[in-house]
Design a protein around this nucleic acid. Structure first.
Lengths: 191, 191
DNA sequence: ATTTGCATGTAATCTGTTACATGATTCA
DNA sequence: TGAATCATGTAACAGATTACATGCAAAT
């Protein structure tokens, strides 16, 4: 008896790949580069996940591929989304799911237990975290500068832009939070 | 030959449990309730994870337990942290790790692909998300009101407070981001 | 000729989720 | 006496990470 597909799981990677292939045919390698590059700012995946998932999507008839030759003999598989895959993807894309549980962040757990540290240790921890988020924020702000003027609605560039703005706002807030935590732990500071 | 403990993994659950047991002896059931209750706002775990992890921590001599009887026969295991466990925990607590990759959020992936929707569909998606985050924000703000005045530095209450403030700031920003996205997608709106 | 990049995969392990499974105690 | 809560576990599966493994092509 064939196993029924389990419909209760998220399959986020599936939709990430279908979404990319819905825009353009690509090889697994190109998909890897995309997710390791600019996209990794908000969606990171490992190379080793890609090929098994593409294989699975092929078996499920969500994608197909044709083999192309680079140079003399090197084979690459150029993947395309199928009609079934596109339908699946569009269904996911419009879906309004209930909010998932807040993602776990180890640092927030450290903060939760931070009264078990000395004041100085806590300050070191907070300052270090702040420095790291400031660096990430500056990097994202550079991305925005490189982006140029605000794109037009209903374009791929606008989607990119919304995600980028979201990432920047998130980092800004994290920095403000950490600064606030430092204040709260320094009784000398003026509130 | 005995397997070496793998030191490259995070073991976040380990430290979450040790941190709790470092404050008070507890049963697995009580730990479950804690993480399902107030803490679930920023750190959610499933009941089924608890008992295997407690078993493992016992084998690793990070915790011990004594059996107590409720009623006539019902056994419960009251866990305590060991000295070794406390050392482990404190080492983790002061550790400044490099930032982990940004946690994956399906919704941001949907936004990234949202130019493949109609303007109306996109608006529905954004508005639905906004409503959900507004509800969560109100819930968190209620928690803050219940919290009372700002706690003193160096107390457990202050740690709680910092995490709560962080959660509120995060939700506020998410709401502002979603409102901004709605603006960006409505050419009629005044910027 | 050597390094870097293109290209595709597998194996082992870890973490987390869903679902199942059982039974005692307390309160209405 | 029946429902809610206390209390502890297991099994199967899903998802992600780390590490390994191989080999061609292009550029310096």
């Amino acid at each position: 008896m064939r196993k029924e597909p389990n419909s209760t799981t998220m399959r986020s990677l599936k939709y990430a790949l279908l979404g990319m292939l819905n825009q353009q045919d690509m090889t697994g390698y190109e998909l890897t580069k995309l997710f390791e590059g600019a996209l990794s700012e908000f969606w990171s995946i490992k190379q080793s996940q890609i090929y098994p998932e593409l294989k699975r999507l092929t078996e499920e008839n969500k994608v197909t591929y044709r083999v192309e030759i680079t140079g003399q003999v090197l084979e690459k598989k150029l993947y395309s989304i199928t009609e079934q895959g596109r339908q699946d993807f569009m269904e996911w894309l419009v879906r309004s799911a209930p909010l998932p549980p807040t993602p776990k962040e180890d640092f927030r757990l450290q903060v939760f237990f931070s009264h078990q540290l000395t004041s100085a240790q806590r300050q070191t921890l907070l300052k270090n975290q702040l420095a790291q988020h400031q660096a990430r924020l500056e990097h994202l702000q550079q991305n925005r500068r490189d982006f140029g003027p605000q794109p037009a609605p209903d374009t791929a560039a606008m989607s990119d832009y919304m995600v980028l703005v979201g990432a920047i706002m998130r980092e800004e807030t994290t920095c403000r939070w950490l600064e606030r935590c430092l204040e709260l732990n320094d009784p000398a500071a003026t509130p």
